[in-house]
């Protein structure tokens, strides 16, 4: 008897059926079952934001959502943000030379995309408040703010 369950969800526009233990976080299904490794593991407890994806259009921690809760839901990862990888935020991230080690940046970009979906022209204070859940140990915060401002103007 297997404890694993089958779950069908839509990831980056594609319906996918996966099998996993019910309490498996979405994060590990994305990374190791669906091979979408751009969503990164940082802390596993919703403290760092490296695993930020959009679930039903909202930024969310892939590490905090068990696969058992994902039936029928829609997930967008960094790989699905823009097919050619040229989302205004990604272009702005290059223009501002944001990434250093780069490990947290998928999560930063996905969170920033959530912000711009909510508000086209966020103020600096709104950016800082919204981006607060996402850690960057290389300290690229100042450039992240600049890149979001650039994308909101140029996007």
């Amino acid at each position: 008897m297997s404890d694993k369950i089958s779950v069908t969800l839509t990831v980056n526009g594609q319906p996918s059926t996966v099998r996993a233990l019910p309490d498996t976080p979405l994060l590990w299904v994305l990374r190791e079952e669906l091979k979408l490794t751009g969503t990164r593991f940082g802390c596993g407890v919703g403290q760092c934001g490296a695993c930020t994806v959009h679930i039903d259009g909202q930024p969310n921690h892939a590490c905090l959502n068990a696969i058992s809760s994902m039936q029928g839901r829609t997930v967008t990862t960094i790989e699905g943000l823009a097919p050619a990888g040229d989302h205004p935020l990604q272009r702005a991230w290059i223009a501002e030379q944001v990434p250093q080690c780069g490990y947290c940046q998928s999560g930063q970009i996905m969170r920033a995309a959530g912000l711009l979906n909510e508000k086209r022209r966020p103020s600096r204070e709104e950016i800082v408040h919204y981006m607060q859940p996402n850690l960057c140990r290389c300290g690229t915060y100042a450039r992240i703010v600049r890149a979001i401002e650039r994308a909101s103007k140029e996007g």
Binding site: G85, I94, P99, G102, Y103, I109
Partner: peptide
């Protein structure tokens, strides 16, 4: 411009944790 930046903003599998 750093040559590793474009891949890193696309979530490219560049770290050992991404290896399959």
């Amino acid at each position: 411009g750093r040559i590793d930046v474009p891949g890193k903003v696309r979530g490219a599998p560049v770290y050992s944790i991404d290896v399959q």
